[in-house]
Simulated assay, not measured.
Amino acid sequence: MADFLPSRSVLSVCFPGCVLTSGEAEQQRKSKEIDKCLSREKTYVKRLVKILLLGAGESGKSTFLKQMRIIHGQDFDQRAREEFRPTIYSNVIKGMRVLVDAREKLHIPWGDNSNQVNGDKMMAFDTRSPSASQGMVETQVFLQYLPAIRALWADSGIQNAYDRRREFQLVRDLVFLHCCYFILMTFTGS
Rank of each mutant, 00 (worst) to 15 (best):
A148H: 05
R8C: 02
I51C: 10
M96E: 05
W110C: 11
V49G: 04
R172K: 10
P147Q: 03
A2P: 04
Q74V: 11
G73R: 04
K36Q: 13
V98E: 14
E104K: 13
A154G: 08
F4M: 07
Y44K: 13
R29A: 15
A154K: 15
L146A: 08
G23T: 12
F84S: 11
P86S: 06
P6I: 02
C37N: 08
S62M: 02
G23L: 08
F76A: 14
D77P: 01
M136R: 15
S59A: 12
T43R: 12
G95K: 05
L143D: 08
L11E: 01
I34P: 00
F187C: 04
T188N: 11
S31W: 10
Q74E: 15
R150A: 10
F4H: 07
S7K: 14
F125E: 04
R8F: 02
F125A: 09
V141F: 02
Q78L: 10
S131K: 09
S190H: 08
Q116D: 08
I71S: 09
S129Y: 05
Y89A: 03
Q140P: 00
S190M: 11
K66F: 06
S156T: 15
L146H: 10
E104C: 06
Y181G: 03
F4N: 06
S59C: 15
A132L: 06
V137Y: 00
C179I: 00
K36L: 13
R47S: 15
K50D: 01
S133M: 10
A80P: 00
L184P: 00
T87R: 13
V98W: 00
F4P: 00
G23R: 11
I183A: 13
V100R: 00
A124T: 04
P109H: 01
I71H: 11
M136L: 15
R128D: 12
C37K: 12
K121I: 12
C180T: 07
S190F: 09
W110K: 09
D3N: 09
T87I: 13
M123C: 05
Q28H: 07
G17R: 12
S31E: 14
G95E: 08
G60R: 00
L5E: 13
L170H: 05
G157W: 00
G23W: 03
D35N: 11
S31H: 12
T139D: 15
Q159S: 09
C18M: 06
M123V: 05
E24H: 07
F176T: 00
F76Q: 11
M123S: 11
Q116H: 05
M122I: 14
T139N: 13
L20N: 08
Q28A: 12
A151T: 10
I34C: 02
M96P: 03
M136A: 10
E83F: 04
R47F: 04
T63R: 05
V92E: 02
I51E: 02
Q74L: 14
D75C: 07
A151P: 03
D155G: 07
G57H: 06
N118E: 07
T43Q: 12
I88Q: 06
D75P: 03
S133Q: 12
L38G: 05
S9C: 01
N160A: 11
A2R: 11
T21W: 07
E58Q: 10
Y162H: 14
M185R: 12
K105L: 10
E138A: 14
I34K: 09
R81W: 06
M68K: 07
T188I: 01
L146Q: 10
P6N: 08
V10L: 04
I71V: 14
N118C: 12
I183W: 01
D120Y: 03
I34G: 01
